[in-house]
């Protein structure tokens, strides 16, 4: 029993170590990729595959989040006669937390799954070894462009999710519940600061890198066979999901500290 626990701990630490090394190699490879223009076409291809096709799902996610928020909160606010403040509530929630997190979760499923399956299949059919045998670093050829693409695109996709969330919330509040249009927007504008939007989008960089790194790692270390690839995909999704939530919490703490230190200075300039 205790021996088992020890074995699991050692296994876990080993795994973390390997993942750490993988991330380090990927990071250096990604920086090198930025410096070599002929790799841009690889990034561009990945951006098309990863980004363009994710736009619809991310927009649908955003729209439903906004609409649901409106439906759920209207009752409480209306009881207090504060229904005109609905806009602030919805838009802050969407822009700061729900848009980024849910868009990232959607991407972890859609993009992360595809990345793990693709690289996992390449791994079990020896295509990754083939890249090595031809004197090319597979991390540089396969992982770096994918990480760069996710890094650049996740924030953009989050903006889409935010926009649709705002539109969805607006439609339900103003069209269905008949809140005054003018009041809805003016409260929103005064309540949502540029800072809120910025941190929401900035989280995208972190989420994107986390999703790509975890998914690629799981693909690279995937076990033989169809079952192995399937398992790697599941593990990649679960790990990405937890990582997104943990990162979100950590970033909330960090951004809060930054905000309380620096934002008051804005009034000085």
């Amino acid at each position: 029993m205790i021996g088992n626990l020890g074995a699991i701990t050692v296994g876990g630490i080993n795994n973390m170590g390997r993942f750490g090394r993988f991330v380090w190699q990927s990071a250096t490879a990604s920086f090198r990729t930025c410096a070599s223009p002929h790799a841009y076409s690889l990034i561009w291809t990945q951006m098309n595959i990863i980004g363009v096709r994710s736009v619809p799902v991310v927009m649908i996610t955003g729209a439903f989040v906004g609409m649901t928020l409106a439906v759920q909160t209207y009752g409480q606010l209306a009881a207090m006669g504060l229904e005109e403040r609905l806009g602030v509530l919805i838009n802050i929630a969407v822009v700061k937390e729900l848009g980024p997190v849910l868009a990232a979760v959607m991407l972890a499923g859609r993009v992360g799954g595809a990345l793990t399956a693709e690289l996992g299949t390449m791994n079990v059919t020896e295509q990754i070894d083939a890249i090595r045998s031809m004197g090319t670093n597979p991390i540089r050829y396969l992982v770096a462009p994918r990480i760069m693409a996710c890094l650049l695109l996740t924030p953009v996709l989050i903006i889409y999710a935010d926009l649709m969330g705002i539109v969805g919330g607006y439609l339900v509040s103003v069209v269905q519940f008949g809140i005054n249009n003018q009041a809805y927007w003016s409260h929103s504008a005064s309540g949502v600061e540029l800072w809120d939007v910025t941190i929401g989008v900035a989280k995208g960089f972190f989420f994107g890198v986390a999703i790509a790194a975890i998914s690629c790692y799981k693909g690279f270390t995937c076990k033989e066979g169809a079952q192995g690839v399937g398992r790697a995909c599941t593990e990649a999704f679960v790990a990405s999901f937890i990582c997104i939530l943990a990162l979100n919490f950590a970033l909330a703490v960090v951004f809060k500290a930054i905000y309380s230190t620096f934002w008051p200075l804005k009034t000085l300039v």
């Binding site: 020896e126 295509q127 083939a130 090595r132 045998s133 031809m134 004197g135 090319t136």
Partner: peptide, 24 residues
């Protein structure tokens, strides 16, 4: 290291048993 090996490996050709063609 893998990076040093990559320079050496360019002098090799390796035919994998399963071919290992890039299917994309």
């Amino acid at each position: 290291s893998e990076n040093e090996l990559n320079r050496v490996r360019t002098q090799y050709g390796f035919l994998f048993q399963g071919g290992a063609l890039f299917d994309s």
